[in-house]
Design a protein around this nucleic acid. Structure first.
Lengths: 345, 345
DNA sequence: TTCCCGGCCGTTACCGCTAACATGCCATGG
DNA sequence: CCATGGCATGTTAGCGGTAACGGCCGGGAA
């Protein structure tokens, strides 16, 4: 922003008044210049900008927001930052918000409904002009807060449920189903499942539900399953795969609830000389970049993370072609990427 | 928070006034109750809380912050969210801030000085009560903003330089040096380097500088090098390793600027039946969880990310034993984890 | 010339909340 | 008995901006 190093020894933080004094115009005029709003003559504008820069003035948005009843913040509430999927959603959001004057503010819930409630409350207390929040399942209190917020709400990642307002995501039930169908189609019959032990990861649960439903439709079922929580997902993937394959050596497919444990499973199989995808097939979920670097490409399903972030941001920013900022529901289509770990028929 | 779903059909957002009307006391008393400050009788407190809950009132922090001149926000400014290292720093920060009433707000710069300047300006305009910011290198304007902010500033990750105020981190030069010494000690002599092409990743640069300096002290040098930018780091690690080993087949050690490309390199070596660590040794940097899941543990150096986050937060929160909130410099000691990819002597 | 209009800038009244002070009440002690 | 003091509550005056409106001035239209 400014290019001059501001003067040393500042007693208190600067206000519009300081800039107006320094440039000989009213505070209102300074405000107009700094916001680029209303008519100000060229020379005046220059004088004001010079003064502001020289002083190192940084506007006080708190005061500005209170007076104008407008806040350029969009709350983005997500369960976690550590699993590669949400950072990509954020990238999409930032991209779209970039030139709107709006700014994303991130809150993390750690998959805890209590924390979600707290984070939401905290966010709302700053009166953001929109909310993007992961998932459709939440406590009654959280739902009430969203309903009464009076701002655009976009629930993301998932469309299997009833949104408060708008929603952008994929159907995880359908994703699970699709994967099951592809697996059965490829001739696998004795299928194992490996996943996380997170009661609040509703999307993983829905994928499994869809997966099992599709198997059932073919007269099949999940033969064995293995769960974990915490720790290095890659390592857990190895360990769980070892465990399940020892216990049920006749499994011919391992469906993992995410790519990271899937990668671990793949590494274990390759290490043990198991023929992939001949003897055992593998699949994960999310389509993270990582899988491209593995010795052979893990089958996965792209969760459309970037696109979800973009579309959600477009809604809150009023950037949709139809201008709608509420009641929009967008279901994206996850793409199956068979990679090298499902037999080609 | 509240447990009742708030009443439907809210015309405008609620204010203290609405709660005070509903509970028959003054706004000031409501304010006292909601902030748990000052004396309020038990019954009054109950009535007020009940009314607030029933209405679904959410305080307006904007007004509160303006009136009290206090903001419970701590700005955390980092280069990226997508490489596993900063989320862990954030975890440490959140942990410590948890019970202080302070709240972290994240800004991402994408390793761009211009964006850093913008993000910082934006953050400062909300008058946070502290700043935690990655790195020591920044534009004069950014430095000036920090110097004039009048709040605790903690620069994190790195201590090789002059902090504006406080700093918590490791010496990346020393980290590079230490790794070089361990490698030479183990008998490796023809050493290659693989890294990112990011002119603004000063910490990676410093590690390389330290690394080369230590080699030079032993009469050695980096024999070949390979750089990348963008894409899946794991895949790039494989590709770069293939490239460098094809070009310089006599290299006996590959030092990677981060664990992700190191993991890619390791997978490539294992895939090509190269004896690790006998014929070729490998090392990365960061100590990310991921490396534990690889077929053999990549040598790495823990960057103390969690601890850095914690210590930084303690400073801005005034939680240090000595209560200092400025001028604190903490150098943490990165630990070499030799794993299985450096010969044991 | 008069009138009107648009460019430019200032004045006033808040935005919703809290610090600081004022007030009323009751129990207590001299 | 009244002064004293602590509790519980109310009143007042901003915090630092901005919306809305008003005033002044110069120039083109009537």
């Amino acid at each position: 922003m400014a290019k001059d190093p501001a003067p040393a020894l500042q007693r208190r933080t600067l206000t519009l008044r300081d800039v107006s004094d320094a440039s000989g115009v009213s505070e209102m005029t300074v405000s107009r210049v700094l916001r680029n709003r209303g008519d100000v003559s060229g020379p005046t504008r220059e004088r004001v900008l010079a003064a502001a820069r020289a002083l190192g003035y940084v506007p006080n948005r708190i005061a500005g927001a209170l007076a104008s009843q407008r806040v350029n913040l969009v709350a983005v509430i997500i369960p976690s930052l550590s699993n590669m999927v949400f950072p990509e959603v954020l990238t999409g959001v930032s991209e779209v918000l970039e030139d709107t004057g709006l700014q994303p503010v991130v809150g993390v819930t750690n998959y805890s409904p209590e924390r979600e409630e707290k984070v939401l409350y905290e966010m709302l207390s700053w009166r953001p002009s929109g909310i993007i929040i992961a998932g459709l399942e939440r406590s009654p209190a959280a739902r009430a807060m969203l309903e009464n917020a009076g701002i655009p709400i976009v629930e993301i990642m998932d469309v299997d449920g009833t949104p408060v307002d708008s929603a952008v995501g994929i159907s995880h039930r359908r994703a699970g189903r699709k994967m099951a169908e592809a697996i059965v189609q490829a001739g696998y019959r004795r299928i194992g499942f490996l996943g996380t032990m997170m009661p609040h990861d509703h999307r993983a649960r829905k994928r499994l539900e869809g997966f099992e439903a599709a198997l059932a439709a073919q007269g099949l079922q999940v033969e064995d399953r293995e769960f974990y929580s915490g720790g290095s997902a890659l390592l857990k993937g190895r360990e769980m795969t070892e465990a399940i394959m020892t216990r049920s050596p006749d499994l011919d497919f391992l469906y993992h609830s995410n790519d990271m444990i899937g990668a671990g499973g793949l590494l274990w199989c390759l290490n043990h000389g198991i023929d992939v995808p001949g003897k055992v097939g593998l699949a994960g979920f999310n389509g993270v970049e990582l899988v491209q670097g593995l010795p052979c490409r893990l089958a996965t399903m792209d969760a459309c993370r970037l696109e979800i972030g973009r579309r959600a941001a477009e809604i809150v920013a009023g950037k949709r072609p139809d201008g709608a900022t509420s009641g929009v529901v967008i279901e994206l289509e996850p793409k199956l990427e068979p990679g090298d770990t499902i037999r080609r028929i």
